[in-house]
């Protein structure tokens, strides 16, 4: 591919050591973001979305976590093998993150100004020696960008004095204050009401468009992904199962898991609710061999129980990790039938 890859994750494996054994959470994750692109990452609770993102920033708690293999390239450099100094540069001005719960992301005992000031001060080496006055002047800019009323007063407020929507705006401002090249937004609207979520997402879209920031949007709300992103990855039990252009994926989901998920979403046009997907996400202690979805898959074949499906390219913009889309699909089917 000729387009510059901003971020590329190759075959990432992450394990957690717990009392009962080893949780094999990420099982060879491949993922990439191009410059200026908005990528969605969809999956249910516990599928490893947040673990993947934490691995990118190297904020996984090690131990119990352990990177068992793989590489994460950010602008050609492997984050996992980076020295501390380079890593802090990446965290300072390369990649920013917005967390799901803005209340937990802000420190309750410092004012917004102090927290934003610290971000501004440490983002770039030349900012370290700035006077308090100058830092304050710089800290107010992101607050203005996120369209918060009366930013002067906000700098001296504590997080508890703000509403949930305002706090999330502050977090967005804080994440964008360092002019990052990549923004990771982990469920940015989930803890907010629909009308407020709509406002926050709209703001986020406008800002990243203006600044040309690349975005990874993590969410379990499919509708949000459809309205915000260019390309989507679907994740299930520590594996990427489908990757496609957003419009393609929503028009024609291919993986049985994606299909089940889409059907389970209640539609505004009515028509009842599908049963959903039977069973539950497998235990990471002892994940099923082969395709991790085969225990719940309505179209399971024999090969799915033995072999882990690689990504099969359906066309240029759509690939799916499912043997149904293998060239040899008919043979697999026959095998299953004869058994």
């Amino acid at each position: 591919m000729s387009t510059p890859r901003l971020l590329e994750i190759k075959d990432l494996r992450v394990e957690f050591k717990v009392y009962g054994g080893v949780l094999k959470v990420l099982d060879g994750v491949n993922f990439s973001v191009n410059a200026g692109e908005k990528v969605g990452l969809v999956g249910e609770t516990g599928c490893g979305k947040t673990t993947t993102m934490k691995a990118i920033l190297r904020i996984l708690p090690i131990p119990p976590a352990r990177i068992a293999g793989g590489e994460i390239f950010f602008k050609g450099q492997d984050i996992l093998r980076m020295r501390k100094r380079d890593l802090s540069k990446v965290r300072g001005s390369g990649i920013s993150m917005i967390f799901q719960d803005p209340t937990a992301a802000l420190n309750p005992v410092f004012t917004i100004g102090e927290q934003l000031g610290a971000v501004v001060q440490h983002a770039r080496p030349e900012n370290r020696r700035l006077s308090k006055r100058k830092i304050r002047d710089k800290a107010i800019i992101p607050l203005k960008e996120v369209a918060l009323a009366d930013p002067e007063r906000l700098l001296d407020s504590y997080p508890i004095q703000l509403s949930g929507g305002m706090r999330q705006r502050v977090c967005i401002g804080m994440a964008l204050a360092t002019d990052p090249e990549l923004l990771i937004a982990d469920e940015p609207g989930t803890s907010l009401d629909v009308t407020i979520q709509d406002q926050v997402l709209r703001l986020l879209r406008v800002l990243v468009e203006e600044k040309g920031t690349s975005v990874i949007l993590i969410t379990h709300t499919l509708g949000v992904v459809r309205e915000t992103t260019d390309r989507v990855y679907v994740m299930y039990a520590g594996n990427m199962v489908e990757e496609a252009h957003t419009r393609k994926l929503f028009a024609e989901p291919l993986h049985p898991y994606t299909q089940g998920l889409m059907q389970a979403v209640p539609k505004l046009t009515g028509g009842g609710i599908a049963e959903g997907i039977p069973g539950r996400i497998p235990s990471y202690l002892d994940p099923p061999p082969g395709c991790r979805f085969h225990t719940r898959c309505p179209r399971v074949m024999d090969i799915c129980r033995r072999q882990k499906p690689p990504f099969f390219k359906v066309d240029e913009e759509h690939q799916v990790a499912c043997f149904l889309y293998d060239q040899n699909h008919d043979r697999h089917k026959e095998e299953t039938a004869t058994l």
Binding site: T195, I196, R226
Partner: peptide, 27 residues
């Protein structure tokens, strides 16, 4: 405003939503 703020997953639903009322202000 509420109905037009809902993120939806298909074109038909998009069509079923009322004309977009941009949500403003805090509760």
């Amino acid at each position: 405003m509420l109905l037009s703020s809902i993120p939806v997953v298909s074109e038909e639903e998009e069509a079923a939503k009322p004309e977009k009322i941009i949500s403003t202000g805090e509760i």
